[in-house]
């Protein structure tokens, strides 16, 4: 029983990390107007920035020049900053474009970055990656129990990202983002600057995703370029669409359910012999389930809900209007 719990905790950790990215994507795409097909860019930038800042110097057979060995908390801040700066750079040219083009350009940037990780050996150690990385609070508990610690950390990170993205999307700024999402021309007449607002939003999403990238490093204890292919972007998009675009509950739920779906099917296995068959079936089964979900819940499992304010009394409002001679 404890074994199953440990396993659940481990995949829960990964789900929490994906949850952070899904929440960041929801901030851009659900709340805001940005169809970002390159969210993995910031995930990778965050991971690499953190590793370069905190890793030990290279060993003999490795090629990277910098491993600054800084404390982890500095690495996290550095990662968030790197994600923000990267978003700003990518946003400069791409936010001038229309939605559909933004989509293509962000996808292309993600691929360019992956090529950079592969080719800039001196910085990233190329395709071999950087490994043997330390995990936070490692010494606190016995090694086998560390799974729980990392899970707790990831949940804290997830809660922080959840709280922050939620606060942002409910604020006046968040309303402006939603207005841009809904009707850019009309939003402009409300004095909202599309490019500036989008840039702030993009930078925020970049920073959040970069922090999620740090957790990913902790989870895997290494970085290799292969981790940051666009598969992750599509994974997160799918999770968001299943959960419900524009709803933070949906984003969270989508990330967890999608990971659980993938891994709960591991328990179906009967023998080593059927493993190969089952694994290929697994992908098909998940596909089928996704189709069913979208067939019966086209807006996701938790569709976007109305924002509720405590509204003033209607009769009083009508009276007030009359008194001012408006009606």
């Amino acid at each position: 029983m404890e074994g199953i719990l440990l396993f659940a905790i481990s995949i829960g950790t990964l789900a929490a990390i994906y949850g952070m990215v899904t929440l960041a994507l929801n901030l851009e795409t659900g709340t805001g107007p940005l169809w970002d097909l390159g969210i993995v860019s910031f995930f990778g930038i965050g991971a690499y920035a953190y590793v370069i800042l905190t890793a030990a110097p290279a060993e003999g057979h490795q090629h990277y020049l910098y491993g600054f060995g800084l404390p982890m908390w500095l690495g996290v801040i550095g990662a968030a900053l790197a994600g923000a700066v990267a978003a700003w750079f990518i946003g400069l040219p791409s936010l001038r474009l229309r939605k559909e083009y933004f989509l293509i350009v962000t996808l292309a940037f993600a691929e360019v970055l992956r090529q950079l990780y592969i080719n800039e050996d001196w910085l990233t150690n190329g395709v071999a990656g950087i490994y043997g990385l330390e995990q936070p609070l490692r010494g606190l508990v016995e090694a086998r129990q560390y799974t729980y610690v990392l899970f707790a950390l990831a949940i804290c990170g997830l809660l922080a990202v959840w709280a922050l993205t939620r606060m942002i999307s409910l604020s006046a700024f968040g309303r402006a983002c939603k207005a841009l999402r809904e009707n850019e021309a009309l939003a402009i007449t409300a004095g909202i600057d599309p490019r500036r607002t989008s840039m702030v939003l993009y930078v925020l999403a970049g920073a959040f995703t970069a922090v999620a990238g740090v957790f990913y490093v902790w989870y895997n204890t290494l970085v290799v370029p292969g981790q940051f292919s666009s598969d992750l972007t599509f994974f997160v998009w799918t999770a968001l669409i299943i959960g419900g675009v524009g709803s933070s509950r949906g984003a969270l739920f989508g990330a967890f359910i999608f990971i659980l779906l993938h891994d709960s099917l591991r328990f179906l296995q009967v023998s080593g012999e059927t493993a190969v068959t089952l694994t290929s079936l697994r992908t098909a089964l998940i596909g089928l389930l996704l189709i069913l979900i979208l067939r019966f819940r086209p807006n996701g499992i938790f569709p976007e809900t109305r924002v509720v304010f405590k509204l003033p009394d209607r009769a009083k409002a009508a009276e007030g209007a009359k008194r001012k001679g408006l009606a």
Partner: peptide, 22 residues
């Protein structure tokens, strides 16, 4: 017990955790 690691690092961590824990 054959487990998939998705040919990737994260998949390996999950798969190994399942093999050991479960």
């Amino acid at each position: 017990v054959t487990e998939d690691n998705n040919s990737a690092v994260a998949g390996a961590v999950r798969g190994a955790t399942k093999l050991v824990s479960v």
